[in-house]
């Protein structure tokens, strides 16, 4: 429960709605970006380049992005991760790339961000629960890392494992999900240039509650596919078991592409509430990234492979 209080607003300060709408736009876009640019730069992240991705979007505020999270390792409430994730230690941290590849390697997190040039991309994020945000991520394409590992012909899928340590992640003391959190992608999805390994948001290192120190971002899939606090990336031959699919196979498929036409068995996926907005928006096929990714699924029955 948020308890933050702000000074009371005087009637003279109330803005007409038309101006308010623009103010919101302004606030969420330029001001938010300006604000984070003004924050003290952290030494831990190397320089990054800006990209054209999502330049036309208004990112959500830092506050929204870092206090409204699904990260069951720290509790199932939306505000639990922000409250509880302080116990996560993100240094030292290693990520192993292993399995069906010629050059398996265990990467130190800081070596990783030096080896692969970081870029900023503003992506839409659609949660399977029916809400969405716009987040300026910092990261690099997962495909670059996988290419370096040189996948063999047997590599058809990629499995992601998050950290398992109930001492650092108190939510793991309860069997809400089958820990550690596991996710998976088809190799071509993993190699797709949109698929990101992210180490930061808003030009800063990832806050713990957002999946520090390194997480996946797959913007055309429901948010839970983007595994957080990753420690292992394994190239495999068979579709890997994934945490939510194991928990409720009828509700969370392996693909879990954002699809307004295929409802969750218990609720509609046709619309979404963009955090910070009053009216709901229509959900877009592949979360609006169809031009880039639809070809990955040509000829597939997306109702069957949901």
């Amino acid at each position: 429960m948020a308890t933050e209080s702000t000074p009371r607003i005087l009637p003279t300060e109330i803005t007409p709605e038309s101006v308010y709408e623009r103010r919101r736009e302004f606030l969420k876009g330029s001001l938010a970006l300006a604000l984070y640019a003004a924050l003290p730069a952290q030494a831990a992240l190397p320089a990054w380049k800006k990209t054209a991705w999502g330049r036309d979007e208004s990112p959500n505020t830092w506050e929204e992005v870092t206090t409204y999270n699904n990260f069951y390792e720290f509790g199932t409430g939306k505000d639990d991760p922000a409250k509880n994730a302080g116990s996560l230690r993100t240094r030292p941290w290693t990520v192993s790339v292993e399995g069906a590849c010629l050059k398996p390697r265990t990467w130190d997190i800081d070596a990783l961000t030096k080896a692969f040039p970081l870029e900023e991309r503003i992506y839409r994020m659609r949660c399977v629960e029916g809400w969405s945000m716009v987040i300026p991520w910092l990261g690099f394409p997962l495909g670059e890392l996988l290419k370096q590992a040189q996948p063999t012909g047997r590599a058809k899928y990629v499995e992601f494992a998050s950290l398992y340590d109930p001492k650092q992640m108190p939510g793991q003391r309860w069997p809400v999900l089958d820990w550690p959190y596991a996710e998976g992608l088809r190799l071509d999805e993993a190699m797709h240039p949109l698929t990101l390994l992210s180490v930061g948001i808003y030009g800063r290192e990832l806050p713990n509650q957002n999946g520090a120190p390194i997480r996946l971002v797959v913007p055309w899939k429901y948010g839970f596919k983007s595994a957080k606090s990753i420690v292992r990336i394994r190239l495999v031959e068979k579709p890997p078991a994934t945490a939510w699919n194991r928990a409720a196979p009828g509700e969370y498929g392996f693909y879990s592409n954002v699809n307004p036409e295929v409802d969750h068995p218990r609720w509609s996926q046709a619309r979404e509430r963009r955090i910070g907005e009053f009216f709901k928006r229509k959900t877009l096929m592949f979360n609006g990234y169809g031009d880039q990714v639809a070809s990955l699924y040509t000829g597939m029955d997306l109702r069957r492979y949901f």
Partner: peptide, 13 residues
């Protein structure tokens, strides 16, 4: 909470 902006990021929910 509403007046004090204390309803969190998704106030309607």
């Amino acid at each position: 909470l509403g007046l004090g902006h204390g309803l969190g990021a998704n106030p309607i929910e």
